[in-house]
Design a protein around this nucleic acid. Structure first.
Ligand SMILES: NC(=O)c1ccc[n+]([C@@H]2O[C@H](COP(=O)([O-])OP(=O)(O)OC[C@H]3O[C@@H](n4cnc5c(N)ncnc54)[C@H](O)[C@@H]3O)[C@@H](O)[C@H]2O)c1
Ligand SMILES: NC(=O)c1ccc[n+]([C@@H]2O[C@H](COP(=O)([O-])OP(=O)(O)OC[C@H]3O[C@@H](n4cnc5c(N)ncnc54)[C@H](O)[C@@H]3O)[C@@H](O)[C@H]2O)c1
Lengths: 217, 217
DNA sequence: GCACAATCGAGAATTTTTTCTTTATTAAAA
DNA sequence: TTTTAATAAAGAAAAAATTCTCGATTGTGC
Protein backbone atom coordinates (compact mmCIF):
# COMPACT_ATOMS: atom_id res chain seq x y z
CA UNK A 1 0.00 0.00 0.00
CA UNK A 2 1.09 3.52 -0.66
CA UNK A 3 0.98 6.41 1.78
CA UNK A 4 -0.98 8.55 -0.63
CA UNK A 5 -3.90 7.89 1.66
CA UNK A 6 -6.24 5.22 2.84
CA UNK A 7 -6.36 2.08 0.82
CA UNK A 8 -9.24 1.43 -1.49
CA UNK A 9 -9.15 -0.93 -4.40
CA UNK A 10 -10.01 0.39 -7.83
CA UNK A 11 -11.76 -2.22 -9.81
CA UNK A 12 -10.85 -0.41 -12.97
CA UNK A 13 -7.47 1.20 -13.24
CA UNK A 14 -4.37 0.37 -11.22
CA UNK A 15 -3.05 3.37 -9.33
CA UNK A 16 0.15 3.69 -11.37
CA UNK A 17 -2.00 3.89 -14.50
CA UNK A 18 -4.25 6.45 -12.86
CA UNK A 19 -1.27 8.62 -12.06
CA UNK A 20 -0.11 8.49 -15.65
CA UNK A 21 -3.46 9.42 -17.16
CA UNK A 22 -3.24 13.17 -16.43
CA UNK A 23 0.14 13.21 -18.17
CA UNK A 24 -1.37 11.68 -21.29
CA UNK A 25 -4.20 14.18 -21.02
CA UNK A 26 -1.86 17.16 -20.87
CA UNK A 27 0.17 15.84 -23.77
CA UNK A 28 -2.91 15.18 -25.87
CA UNK A 29 -4.26 18.65 -25.21
CA UNK A 30 -0.99 20.04 -26.46
CA UNK A 31 -0.97 18.01 -29.67
CA UNK A 32 -4.63 18.79 -30.29
CA UNK A 33 -3.80 22.48 -30.14
CA UNK A 34 -1.20 21.79 -32.77
CA UNK A 35 -3.92 20.38 -34.98
CA UNK A 36 -3.20 16.69 -34.65
CA UNK A 37 -6.34 14.64 -35.27
CA UNK A 38 -5.01 11.14 -34.76
CA UNK A 39 -2.16 9.91 -32.66
CA UNK A 40 -0.75 6.43 -32.17
CA UNK A 41 0.58 4.78 -29.04
CA UNK A 42 4.13 4.56 -30.40
CA UNK A 43 4.16 8.30 -31.04
CA UNK A 44 2.82 9.03 -27.57
CA UNK A 45 5.39 6.66 -26.14
CA UNK A 46 8.24 8.33 -27.99
CA UNK A 47 7.23 11.75 -26.71
CA UNK A 48 6.62 10.67 -23.15
CA UNK A 49 9.59 8.30 -23.16
CA UNK A 50 7.64 5.25 -22.13
CA UNK A 51 6.69 1.87 -23.46
CA UNK A 52 4.09 1.99 -26.27
CA UNK A 53 2.32 -1.15 -25.11
CA UNK A 54 1.89 0.44 -21.73
CA UNK A 55 0.34 3.44 -23.42
CA UNK A 56 -2.14 1.10 -25.10
CA UNK A 57 -2.94 -0.65 -21.86
CA UNK A 58 -3.28 2.58 -19.91
CA UNK A 59 -5.54 4.23 -22.46
CA UNK A 60 -7.73 1.16 -22.72
CA UNK A 61 -9.27 1.99 -19.33
CA UNK A 62 -11.11 4.85 -20.99
CA UNK A 63 -12.89 2.43 -23.32
CA UNK A 64 -11.67 4.29 -26.40
CA UNK A 65 -10.59 2.07 -29.26
CA UNK A 66 -7.69 2.93 -31.49
CA UNK A 67 -7.37 1.89 -35.11
CA UNK A 68 -4.34 0.03 -36.42
CA UNK A 69 -2.12 2.25 -38.57
CA UNK A 70 -4.03 5.33 -37.43
CA UNK A 71 -4.04 5.41 -33.69
CA UNK A 72 -6.53 7.19 -31.50
CA UNK A 73 -8.72 10.13 -32.29
CA UNK A 74 -7.23 12.94 -30.24
CA UNK A 75 -10.46 14.67 -29.45
CA UNK A 76 -12.28 11.49 -28.53
CA UNK A 77 -9.42 10.36 -26.31
CA UNK A 78 -9.17 13.68 -24.49
CA UNK A 79 -12.88 13.65 -23.88
CA UNK A 80 -12.80 10.09 -22.57
CA UNK A 81 -9.84 10.81 -20.30
CA UNK A 82 -11.51 13.88 -18.83
CA UNK A 83 -14.64 11.86 -18.31
CA UNK A 84 -12.77 8.99 -16.71
CA UNK A 85 -10.71 11.21 -14.43
CA UNK A 86 -13.69 13.37 -13.54
CA UNK A 87 -11.89 16.50 -14.75
CA UNK A 88 -14.86 17.65 -16.78
CA UNK A 89 -17.10 17.83 -13.74
CA UNK A 90 -16.95 20.87 -11.46
CA UNK A 91 -15.60 19.16 -8.33
CA UNK A 92 -16.01 22.14 -6.05
CA UNK A 93 -13.66 22.35 -3.11
CA UNK A 94 -12.85 24.43 -0.03
CA UNK A 95 -9.32 25.40 0.85
CA UNK A 96 -8.27 25.97 4.44
CA UNK A 97 -5.04 27.84 5.18
CA UNK A 98 -4.48 30.63 2.68
CA UNK A 99 -0.78 30.97 3.44
CA UNK A 100 2.13 30.51 1.08
CA UNK A 101 1.05 27.28 -0.50
CA UNK A 102 -2.67 27.91 -0.18
CA UNK A 103 -2.34 31.24 -2.00
CA UNK A 104 -0.41 29.62 -4.81
CA UNK A 105 -3.16 27.06 -5.30
CA UNK A 106 -5.85 29.75 -5.16
CA UNK A 107 -4.02 31.87 -7.71
CA UNK A 108 -3.56 28.86 -9.96
CA UNK A 109 -7.33 28.55 -10.38
CA UNK A 110 -7.55 31.35 -12.86
CA UNK A 111 -4.97 30.06 -15.25
CA UNK A 112 -5.52 26.39 -15.68
CA UNK A 113 -7.74 23.65 -14.46
CA UNK A 114 -6.35 21.41 -11.78
CA UNK A 115 -9.29 19.05 -11.94
CA UNK A 116 -10.98 20.69 -8.98
CA UNK A 117 -12.47 24.13 -8.52
CA UNK A 118 -11.73 26.03 -5.33
CA UNK A 119 -14.83 28.03 -4.50
CA UNK A 120 -13.89 29.42 -1.11
CA UNK A 121 -10.89 29.75 1.17
CA UNK A 122 -10.78 29.99 4.95
CA UNK A 123 -8.16 31.21 7.37
CA UNK A 124 -7.82 32.43 10.96
CA UNK A 125 -5.37 35.23 10.22
CA UNK A 126 -7.22 38.55 10.34
CA UNK A 127 -4.64 40.05 8.00
CA UNK A 128 -5.62 37.59 5.31
CA UNK A 129 -9.36 37.35 5.93
CA UNK A 130 -11.25 39.63 3.58
CA UNK A 131 -8.57 39.67 0.90
CA UNK A 132 -8.99 38.02 -2.48
CA UNK A 133 -6.52 35.68 -4.08
CA UNK A 134 -7.17 35.09 -7.73
CA UNK A 135 -10.93 35.46 -7.81
CA UNK A 136 -11.51 33.75 -4.49
CA UNK A 137 -12.26 35.57 -1.26
CA UNK A 138 -10.62 34.42 1.94
CA UNK A 139 -13.28 34.04 4.59
CA UNK A 140 -13.18 33.72 8.33
CA UNK A 141 -12.59 30.11 9.33
CA UNK A 142 -15.83 29.81 11.30
CA UNK A 143 -17.85 30.59 8.19
CA UNK A 144 -16.86 27.21 6.81
CA UNK A 145 -19.41 25.38 8.93
CA UNK A 146 -22.28 27.46 7.69
CA UNK A 147 -21.23 27.53 4.04
CA UNK A 148 -20.46 23.84 3.80
CA UNK A 149 -24.02 22.93 4.63
CA UNK A 150 -25.40 25.31 2.08
CA UNK A 151 -23.04 24.48 -0.77
CA UNK A 152 -22.67 20.76 -0.21
CA UNK A 153 -18.96 20.71 -0.92
CA UNK A 154 -17.28 17.30 -0.78
CA UNK A 155 -13.59 18.12 -1.22
CA UNK A 156 -11.33 19.96 1.20
CA UNK A 157 -7.81 21.18 0.49
CA UNK A 158 -5.68 21.33 3.63
CA UNK A 159 -2.79 23.82 3.60
CA UNK A 160 -2.59 24.92 7.22
CA UNK A 161 0.47 24.50 9.42
CA UNK A 162 1.04 20.89 10.46
CA UNK A 163 0.12 21.32 14.09
CA UNK A 164 -3.48 22.35 13.42
CA UNK A 165 -4.04 19.95 10.51
CA UNK A 166 -5.74 17.20 12.54
CA UNK A 167 -8.19 19.64 14.12
CA UNK A 168 -9.01 21.36 10.83
CA UNK A 169 -9.44 17.99 9.12
CA UNK A 170 -11.91 16.92 11.79
CA UNK A 171 -13.81 20.16 11.29
CA UNK A 172 -13.89 19.49 7.56
CA UNK A 173 -15.38 16.07 8.20
CA UNK A 174 -18.00 17.66 10.44
CA UNK A 175 -18.82 20.00 7.58
CA UNK A 176 -19.66 17.00 5.42
CA UNK A 177 -16.43 16.89 3.47
CA UNK A 178 -15.76 13.42 2.09
CA UNK A 179 -12.26 13.77 0.66
CA UNK A 180 -9.27 15.75 1.91
CA UNK A 181 -6.34 16.76 -0.23
CA UNK A 182 -3.69 17.01 2.44
CA UNK A 183 -0.56 19.08 1.77
CA UNK A 184 0.61 19.07 5.37
CA UNK A 185 2.99 16.50 6.77
CA UNK A 186 0.49 15.61 9.48
CA UNK A 187 -0.72 12.04 9.55
CA UNK A 188 -4.46 12.47 9.71
CA UNK A 189 -6.55 10.13 11.81
CA UNK A 190 -10.10 10.25 10.46
CA UNK A 191 -13.07 7.93 10.00
CA UNK A 192 -12.49 5.15 7.49
CA UNK A 193 -15.03 6.47 5.00
CA UNK A 194 -13.11 9.73 4.59
CA UNK A 195 -10.69 9.76 1.67
CA UNK A 196 -7.33 11.30 2.46
CA UNK A 197 -5.00 12.12 -0.39
CA UNK A 198 -1.59 12.98 1.00
CA UNK A 199 0.62 15.05 -1.27
CA UNK A 200 3.96 15.36 0.34
CA UNK A 201 6.67 17.13 -1.56
CA UNK A 202 9.39 15.31 0.39
CA UNK A 203 8.35 12.20 -1.46
CA UNK A 204 9.44 13.75 -4.73
CA UNK A 205 12.62 15.06 -3.20
CA UNK A 206 13.44 11.61 -1.86
CA UNK A 207 13.16 10.06 -5.30
CA UNK A 208 15.08 12.89 -6.93
CA UNK A 209 17.97 12.80 -4.47
CA UNK A 210 18.29 9.07 -4.64
CA UNK A 211 18.36 9.07 -8.41
CA UNK A 212 20.94 11.84 -8.33
CA UNK A 213 23.13 9.94 -5.88
CA UNK A 214 22.76 6.70 -7.80
CA UNK A 215 23.79 8.42 -11.03
CA UNK A 216 26.93 9.84 -9.47
CA UNK A 217 28.71 6.58 -8.88
CA UNK B 1 7.55 2.92 -15.67
CA UNK B 2 6.18 5.90 -13.89
CA UNK B 3 6.05 9.42 -15.26
CA UNK B 4 7.85 10.83 -12.27
CA UNK B 5 10.77 11.17 -14.60
CA UNK B 6 13.33 9.25 -16.55
CA UNK B 7 13.73 5.64 -15.62
CA UNK B 8 16.74 4.55 -13.64
CA UNK B 9 16.94 1.36 -11.65
CA UNK B 10 17.71 1.58 -7.97
CA UNK B 11 19.66 -1.40 -6.89
CA UNK B 12 18.61 -0.77 -3.35
CA UNK B 13 15.08 0.37 -2.64
CA UNK B 14 12.02 -0.06 -4.86
CA UNK B 15 10.44 3.27 -5.73
CA UNK B 16 7.25 2.67 -3.72
CA UNK B 17 9.42 2.07 -0.67
CA UNK B 18 11.44 5.20 -1.41
CA UNK B 19 8.27 7.26 -1.50
CA UNK B 20 7.18 5.90 1.86
CA UNK B 21 10.47 6.58 3.62
CA UNK B 22 9.91 10.34 4.11
CA UNK B 23 6.58 9.54 5.74
CA UNK B 24 8.26 7.23 8.23
CA UNK B 25 10.85 9.92 8.81
CA UNK B 26 8.27 12.58 9.58
CA UNK B 27 6.40 10.25 11.89
CA UNK B 28 9.57 9.22 13.71
CA UNK B 29 10.61 12.83 14.21
CA UNK B 30 7.25 13.47 15.78
CA UNK B 31 7.45 10.52 18.19
CA UNK B 32 11.04 11.37 19.06
CA UNK B 33 9.92 14.84 20.08
CA UNK B 34 7.41 13.15 22.34
CA UNK B 35 10.29 11.34 24.02
CA UNK B 36 9.88 7.88 22.52
CA UNK B 37 13.21 6.05 22.51
CA UNK B 38 12.17 2.78 20.90
CA UNK B 39 9.39 2.04 18.47
CA UNK B 40 8.28 -1.23 16.89
CA UNK B 41 7.05 -1.91 13.38
CA UNK B 42 3.54 -2.87 14.55
CA UNK B 43 3.21 0.48 16.35
CA UNK B 44 4.42 2.39 13.30
CA UNK B 45 2.02 0.36 11.16
CA UNK B 46 -0.92 1.11 13.42
CA UNK B 47 -0.25 4.84 13.31
CA UNK B 48 0.40 4.99 9.60
CA UNK B 49 -2.35 2.50 8.80
CA UNK B 50 -0.16 0.11 6.90
CA UNK B 51 1.10 -3.43 7.10
CA UNK B 52 3.76 -4.00 9.81
CA UNK B 53 5.75 -6.45 7.71
CA UNK B 54 6.00 -3.82 5.04
CA UNK B 55 7.31 -1.38 7.61
CA UNK B 56 10.03 -3.89 8.51
CA UNK B 57 10.92 -4.46 4.89
CA UNK B 58 10.93 -0.75 4.07
CA UNK B 59 13.08 0.20 7.04
CA UNK B 60 15.51 -2.60 6.34
CA UNK B 61 16.92 -0.62 3.39
CA UNK B 62 18.54 1.73 5.89
CA UNK B 63 20.56 -1.13 7.35
CA UNK B 64 19.26 -0.46 10.85
CA UNK B 65 18.44 -3.57 12.88
CA UNK B 66 15.54 -3.71 15.26
CA UNK B 67 15.38 -5.87 18.37
CA UNK B 68 12.53 -8.31 18.97
CA UNK B 69 10.15 -7.13 21.68
CA UNK B 70 11.76 -3.67 21.59
CA UNK B 71 11.68 -2.39 18.05
CA UNK B 72 13.97 0.20 16.56
CA UNK B 73 15.91 2.92 18.27
CA UNK B 74 14.13 6.09 17.20
CA UNK B 75 17.19 8.26 17.05
CA UNK B 76 19.26 5.71 15.18
CA UNK B 77 16.49 5.10 12.68
CA UNK B 78 15.91 8.78 12.00
CA UNK B 79 19.59 9.27 11.46
CA UNK B 80 19.80 6.32 9.08
CA UNK B 81 16.75 7.46 7.12
CA UNK B 82 18.14 10.97 6.73
CA UNK B 83 21.42 9.49 5.64
CA UNK B 84 19.78 7.10 3.19
CA UNK B 85 17.51 9.75 1.70
CA UNK B 86 20.28 12.33 1.59
CA UNK B 87 18.22 14.75 3.69
CA UNK B 88 21.12 15.44 6.04
CA UNK B 89 23.28 16.75 3.23
CA UNK B 90 22.89 20.32 2.05
CA UNK B 91 21.65 19.60 -1.49
CA UNK B 92 21.79 23.15 -2.70
CA UNK B 93 19.37 24.11 -5.47
CA UNK B 94 18.38 26.97 -7.72
CA UNK B 95 14.77 27.91 -8.29
CA UNK B 96 13.61 29.49 -11.52
CA UNK B 97 10.24 31.23 -11.66
CA UNK B 98 9.50 33.03 -8.40
CA UNK B 99 5.77 33.29 -9.04
CA UNK B 100 2.94 31.86 -7.00
CA UNK B 101 4.30 28.39 -6.52
CA UNK B 102 7.95 29.40 -6.58
CA UNK B 103 7.37 31.94 -3.80
CA UNK B 104 5.62 29.36 -1.68
CA UNK B 105 8.57 27.01 -2.00
CA UNK B 106 11.02 29.80 -1.24
CA UNK B 107 9.06 30.84 1.83
CA UNK B 108 8.89 27.24 2.99
CA UNK B 109 12.66 27.13 3.32
CA UNK B 110 12.73 29.00 6.57
CA UNK B 111 10.33 26.84 8.41
CA UNK B 112 11.16 23.27 7.65
CA UNK B 113 13.55 21.25 5.64
CA UNK B 114 12.29 19.88 2.38
CA UNK B 115 15.41 17.83 1.82
CA UNK B 116 16.93 20.45 -0.46
CA UNK B 117 18.13 23.97 0.22
CA UNK B 118 17.20 26.72 -2.19
CA UNK B 119 20.13 29.11 -2.30
CA UNK B 120 19.04 31.42 -5.10
CA UNK B 121 15.97 32.22 -7.17
CA UNK B 122 15.80 33.64 -10.68
CA UNK B 123 13.05 35.37 -12.64
CA UNK B 124 12.58 37.63 -15.64
CA UNK B 125 9.91 39.85 -14.08
CA UNK B 126 11.49 43.18 -13.11
CA UNK B 127 8.83 43.65 -10.45
CA UNK B 128 10.05 40.53 -8.67
CA UNK B 129 13.79 40.81 -9.30
CA UNK B 130 15.51 42.34 -6.33
CA UNK B 131 12.89 41.33 -3.80
CA UNK B 132 13.47 38.73 -1.12
CA UNK B 133 11.22 35.82 -0.36
CA UNK B 134 11.99 34.17 2.90
CA UNK B 135 15.70 34.77 3.15
CA UNK B 136 16.35 34.25 -0.55
CA UNK B 137 16.92 37.05 -3.03
CA UNK B 138 15.34 36.86 -6.42
CA UNK B 139 17.97 37.55 -9.03
CA UNK B 140 17.84 38.42 -12.68
CA UNK B 141 17.55 35.30 -14.78
CA UNK B 142 20.77 35.90 -16.72
CA UNK B 143 22.74 35.81 -13.49
CA UNK B 144 22.05 32.10 -13.26
CA UNK B 145 24.71 31.26 -15.83
CA UNK B 146 27.42 33.06 -13.95
CA UNK B 147 26.42 31.87 -10.49
CA UNK B 148 25.95 28.25 -11.43
CA UNK B 149 29.55 27.95 -12.47
CA UNK B 150 30.76 29.50 -9.27
CA UNK B 151 28.52 27.61 -6.87
CA UNK B 152 28.45 24.24 -8.58
CA UNK B 153 24.75 23.68 -7.98
CA UNK B 154 23.37 20.35 -9.21
CA UNK B 155 19.63 20.70 -8.59
CA UNK B 156 17.19 23.04 -10.31
CA UNK B 157 13.58 23.69 -9.30
CA UNK B 158 11.43 24.65 -12.26
CA UNK B 159 8.34 26.74 -11.47
CA UNK B 160 8.01 28.92 -14.54
CA UNK B 161 4.96 28.98 -16.81
CA UNK B 162 4.66 25.85 -18.95
CA UNK B 163 5.51 27.50 -22.25
CA UNK B 164 9.02 28.53 -21.23
CA UNK B 165 9.81 25.41 -19.24
CA UNK B 166 11.71 23.58 -22.00
CA UNK B 167 13.91 26.57 -22.71
CA UNK B 168 14.64 27.23 -19.02
CA UNK B 169 15.36 23.53 -18.47
CA UNK B 170 17.88 23.57 -21.33
CA UNK B 171 19.51 26.64 -19.79
CA UNK B 172 19.70 24.82 -16.47
CA UNK B 173 21.45 21.92 -18.13
CA UNK B 174 23.91 24.33 -19.73
CA UNK B 175 24.57 25.69 -16.26
CA UNK B 176 25.68 22.25 -15.16
CA UNK B 177 22.49 21.26 -13.38
CA UNK B 178 22.13 17.49 -13.17
CA UNK B 179 18.62 17.09 -11.76
CA UNK B 180 15.47 19.11 -12.35
CA UNK B 181 12.49 19.15 -10.05
CA UNK B 182 9.80 20.04 -12.55
CA UNK B 183 6.52 21.50 -11.28
CA UNK B 184 5.32 22.56 -14.71
CA UNK B 185 3.13 20.39 -16.89
CA UNK B 186 5.65 20.61 -19.71
CA UNK B 187 7.14 17.35 -20.91
CA UNK B 188 10.83 18.10 -20.86
CA UNK B 189 13.08 16.73 -23.56
CA UNK B 190 16.61 16.70 -22.19
CA UNK B 191 19.77 14.59 -22.47
CA UNK B 192 19.46 11.12 -20.97
CA UNK B 193 21.90 11.78 -18.16
CA UNK B 194 19.74 14.58 -16.75
CA UNK B 195 17.37 13.48 -14.01
CA UNK B 196 13.89 14.93 -14.32
CA UNK B 197 11.52 14.60 -11.39
CA UNK B 198 8.06 15.60 -12.47
CA UNK B 199 5.71 16.66 -9.71
CA UNK B 200 2.32 17.20 -11.17
CA UNK B 201 -0.51 18.03 -8.85
CA UNK B 202 -3.09 16.71 -11.32
CA UNK B 203 -1.77 13.28 -10.54
CA UNK B 204 -2.94 13.62 -6.94
CA UNK B 205 -6.24 15.08 -8.04
CA UNK B 206 -6.79 12.17 -10.40
CA UNK B 207 -6.34 9.63 -7.64
CA UNK B 208 -8.46 11.64 -5.22
CA UNK B 209 -11.37 12.09 -7.62
CA UNK B 210 -11.37 8.47 -8.63
CA UNK B 211 -11.42 7.28 -5.06
CA UNK B 212 -14.19 9.72 -4.31
CA UNK B 213 -16.24 8.52 -7.25
CA UNK B 214 -15.59 4.88 -6.43
CA UNK B 215 -16.71 5.42 -2.84
CA UNK B 216 -19.96 6.98 -3.92
CA UNK B 217 -21.45 3.95 -5.53
C1' DG C 1 -7.40 -5.63 -55.82
C1' DC C 2 -3.40 -7.54 -53.37
C1' DA C 3 0.68 -7.54 -50.74
C1' DC C 4 2.87 -4.99 -47.15
C1' DA C 5 3.84 -2.45 -43.09
C1' DA C 6 2.13 -0.40 -39.00
C1' DT C 7 -0.19 -0.80 -34.82
C1' DC C 8 -3.99 -2.08 -31.85
C1' DG C 9 -5.64 -5.55 -28.57
C1' DA C 10 -5.54 -9.55 -25.79
C1' DG C 11 -3.29 -12.64 -23.28
C1' DA C 12 1.18 -14.79 -21.74
C1' DA C 13 5.47 -14.17 -19.52
C1' DT C 14 8.29 -11.57 -16.72
C1' DT C 15 9.39 -8.50 -13.21
C1' DT C 16 8.33 -5.98 -9.25
C1' DT C 17 6.00 -5.29 -5.03
C1' DT C 18 3.31 -6.82 -1.29
C1' DT C 19 1.79 -10.12 1.92
C1' DC C 20 2.30 -14.36 4.36
C1' DT C 21 4.99 -17.88 6.91
C1' DT C 22 8.51 -19.50 9.51
C1' DT C 23 12.34 -19.07 12.48
C1' DA C 24 15.16 -16.96 15.79
C1' DT C 25 15.88 -13.51 19.17
C1' DT C 26 14.83 -10.81 23.00
C1' DA C 27 12.72 -8.90 27.29
C1' DA C 28 9.55 -9.66 30.70
C1' DA C 29 6.96 -12.75 33.70
C1' DA C 30 6.67 -16.80 36.37
C1' DT D 1 16.41 -19.80 35.74
C1' DT D 2 12.83 -21.12 32.75
C1' DT D 3 8.86 -20.04 30.28
C1' DT D 4 6.19 -17.08 27.52
C1' DA D 5 4.85 -13.55 24.37
C1' DA D 6 6.22 -10.16 21.16
C1' DT D 7 8.59 -9.05 17.20
C1' DA D 8 12.38 -8.63 13.72
C1' DA D 9 14.38 -10.97 9.73
C1' DA D 10 14.51 -13.82 5.86
C1' DG D 11 12.52 -16.23 2.51
C1' DA D 12 8.29 -18.06 0.14
C1' DA D 13 4.02 -17.13 -1.87
C1' DA D 14 0.78 -14.17 -3.80
C1' DA D 15 -0.63 -10.17 -6.08
C1' DA D 16 0.14 -6.41 -9.03
C1' DA D 17 2.29 -4.14 -12.71
C1' DT D 18 5.02 -4.10 -16.73
C1' DT D 19 6.78 -5.96 -20.83
C1' DC D 20 6.61 -9.23 -24.45
C1' DT D 21 4.35 -11.96 -28.15
C1' DC D 22 1.32 -12.83 -31.53
C1' DG D 23 -2.85 -12.56 -34.16
C1' DA D 24 -6.17 -9.31 -36.18
C1' DT D 25 -7.08 -5.14 -38.51
C1' DT D 26 -6.41 -1.24 -41.31
C1' DG D 27 -4.49 2.06 -44.43
C1' DT D 28 -0.84 2.65 -48.16
C1' DG D 29 1.50 1.71 -52.23
C1' DC D 30 2.08 -1.29 -56.10
N1 LIG E 1 4.92 26.45 1.29
C1 LIG E 1 5.31 25.36 0.67
O1 LIG E 1 5.96 25.43 -0.37
C2 LIG E 1 4.97 24.01 1.19
C3 LIG E 1 5.51 22.90 0.56
C4 LIG E 1 5.18 21.62 1.02
C5 LIG E 1 4.34 21.50 2.08
N2 LIG E 1 3.85 22.57 2.69
C6 LIG E 1 2.94 22.37 3.81
O2 LIG E 1 1.78 23.11 3.61
C7 LIG E 1 1.32 23.62 4.83
C8 LIG E 1 1.19 25.10 4.73
O3 LIG E 1 2.44 25.65 4.40
P1 LIG E 1 2.59 27.20 4.13
O4 LIG E 1 4.00 27.43 3.77
O5 LIG E 1 1.54 27.65 3.20
O6 LIG E 1 2.32 27.79 5.58
P2 LIG E 1 1.75 29.23 5.95
O7 LIG E 1 2.06 29.46 7.37
O8 LIG E 1 2.22 30.21 4.94
O9 LIG E 1 0.19 29.11 5.77
C9 LIG E 1 -0.63 28.50 6.68
C10 LIG E 1 -1.92 29.29 6.75
O10 LIG E 1 -2.83 28.59 7.59
C11 LIG E 1 -3.49 29.54 8.42
N3 LIG E 1 -3.95 28.86 9.62
C12 LIG E 1 -3.27 28.63 10.76
N4 LIG E 1 -4.04 27.98 11.65
C13 LIG E 1 -5.25 27.84 11.07
C14 LIG E 1 -6.47 27.27 11.51
N5 LIG E 1 -6.59 26.72 12.71
N6 LIG E 1 -7.49 27.29 10.66
C15 LIG E 1 -7.37 27.82 9.43
N7 LIG E 1 -6.26 28.39 8.97
C16 LIG E 1 -5.20 28.39 9.80
C17 LIG E 1 -2.46 30.59 8.69
O11 LIG E 1 -3.08 31.80 9.06
C18 LIG E 1 -1.73 30.66 7.35
O12 LIG E 1 -2.32 31.62 6.52
C19 LIG E 1 2.30 23.16 5.88
O13 LIG E 1 1.83 21.99 6.47
C20 LIG E 1 3.52 22.85 5.10
O14 LIG E 1 4.26 21.83 5.72
C21 LIG E 1 4.13 23.83 2.26
N1 LIG F 1 0.43 27.88 -8.53
C1 LIG F 1 0.14 26.62 -8.28
O1 LIG F 1 -0.50 26.30 -7.29
C2 LIG F 1 0.58 25.54 -9.20
C3 LIG F 1 0.14 24.25 -8.97
C4 LIG F 1 0.56 23.23 -9.81
C5 LIG F 1 1.40 23.51 -10.85
N2 LIG F 1 1.83 24.75 -11.07
C6 LIG F 1 2.72 24.98 -12.19
O2 LIG F 1 3.82 25.72 -11.74
C7 LIG F 1 4.23 26.60 -12.73
C8 LIG F 1 4.23 28.00 -12.16
O3 LIG F 1 2.95 28.33 -11.69
P1 LIG F 1 2.67 29.67 -10.94
O4 LIG F 1 1.27 29.68 -10.53
O5 LIG F 1 3.69 29.88 -9.89
O6 LIG F 1 2.88 30.72 -12.11
P2 LIG F 1 3.31 32.24 -12.00
O7 LIG F 1 2.97 32.88 -13.29
O8 LIG F 1 2.78 32.82 -10.74
O9 LIG F 1 4.89 32.19 -11.85
C9 LIG F 1 5.75 31.99 -12.92
C10 LIG F 1 6.98 32.86 -12.71
O10 LIG F 1 7.93 32.53 -13.72
C11 LIG F 1 8.49 33.73 -14.19
N3 LIG F 1 8.99 33.53 -15.55
C12 LIG F 1 8.32 33.61 -16.71
N4 LIG F 1 9.13 33.35 -17.75
C13 LIG F 1 10.34 33.11 -17.23
C14 LIG F 1 11.60 32.80 -17.80
N5 LIG F 1 11.76 32.67 -19.13
N6 LIG F 1 12.64 32.65 -16.99
C15 LIG F 1 12.49 32.77 -15.66
N7 LIG F 1 11.33 33.06 -15.05
C16 LIG F 1 10.27 33.22 -15.83
C17 LIG F 1 7.38 34.74 -14.14
O11 LIG F 1 7.89 36.05 -14.09
C18 LIG F 1 6.67 34.34 -12.85
O12 LIG F 1 7.20 35.03 -11.75
C19 LIG F 1 3.26 26.43 -13.88
O13 LIG F 1 3.82 25.57 -14.82
C20 LIG F 1 2.09 25.80 -13.27
O14 LIG F 1 1.42 24.96 -14.18
C21 LIG F 1 1.43 25.78 -10.26
Amino acid sequence: MSFSGKLRKHKNAPEPTLRRLPVYLYFLEKVREEGTINISAPVIGKNLKCDPTQVVKDLSVTGIKGKPRVGYNTYELIHALEEYLGFNRTNEAFLVGAGNLGSALLAYQDNQSLGIKLIAAFDVDTEIIGTSIGSIHVLEYNKMFHLANRLNVEIGVLTTPNHVAQKVAEDMVNCGIKAIWNFTSAILDLPDNIIVQNTSLSTSVAVLLRRLNDSEK
